[in-house]
């Protein structure tokens, strides 16, 4: 299975296809003083991080700002990445930490005003979504941060429990408990009765 948010082949550019680990390569170049090499990381990871931000707040402008800031944070934090750790896990964790503190600083009424002003994006598929689906996805942004993050990370790119837990820095058991609680909170906010199990079916491997 593909790691969380791992860039798709179509997201990659030119010679990156030929490099076994383009992220590690770019990190080394940046740490050696070649800051421009960071652009490769941005191009590969802009889509996963933007979608992570979008699903955390559902405000297009705010998601873009948060993504941009998260990349700057990633740039500053590159020396702390250990090459034996998965870059995908690390970059998602750094971004998620930033989104958490950024959303904590953003007043809820500001988010509400932005929502009222927000124009539908004609290129997205949101316009053809059913109302209940849209209501559920918006309800996720209203969850307390720990439950919102569990849902957002777990369902981003069909991620499995182990990788999601690694990104969130918690055990698999804790993640399952948070997912269960999040589903109950979502069900209550939407006025429906949830199923009682904890996680979605794990994808089949192999």
């Amino acid at each position: 299975m593909q790691p969380l948010g791992a860039p798709r082949a179509s997201d990659l550019n030119g010679a990156d296809h030929l490099t076994p680990d383009p992220d590690a390569d770019d990190v080394q170049r940046v740490l050696a003083g070649e800051s421009a090499a960071f652009e490769g990381i941005v191009r590969r990871w802009q889509r996963p991080l933007y979608n992570l931000a979008w699903r955390s707040c559902r405000r297009r402008e705010l998601a873009e700002d948060m993504t941009q800031e998260a990349f700057v944070k990633v740039f500053r934090s590159l020396p702390s990445w250990r090459a034996d750790a998965r870059f995908s896990t690390w970059i998602h964790a750094v971004a998620l930490n930033h989104f958490r503190s950024r959303l904590r600083r953003t007043p809820r009424q500001v988010l509400g005003l932005e929502a009222a002003r927000a124009q539908p994006d004609p290129k997205s598929e949101r316009e053809v979504e059913s109302a209940p689906a849209e209501a559920l996805r918006h309800a996720v942004t209203g969850l307390p941060p720990r439950y919102r993050e569990a849902i957002v990370v777990h369902y981003l790119d069909q991620q499995d429990v182990r990788e999601s837990a690694a990104i969130l820095g918690i055990s698999e058991g804790t993640l399952k408990a948070r997912l269960s609680r999040a589903r109950a909170l979502l069900a209550r906010s939407l006025g429906i009765t949830p199923r009682t199990d904890t996680t979605r079916e794990e994808p089949q491997h192999g």
Binding site: Q46, R47, Y50, E64, K123, R137, Y155
Partner: peptide, 17 residues
């Protein structure tokens, strides 16, 4: 819940990001 949350389409960030 699973079907809706896991079927959300991926959005493209702004081209100048």
């Amino acid at each position: 819940f699973d079907r809706i949350l896991s079927s959300e389409a991926s959005l493209e960030p702004a081209p100048d990001l």
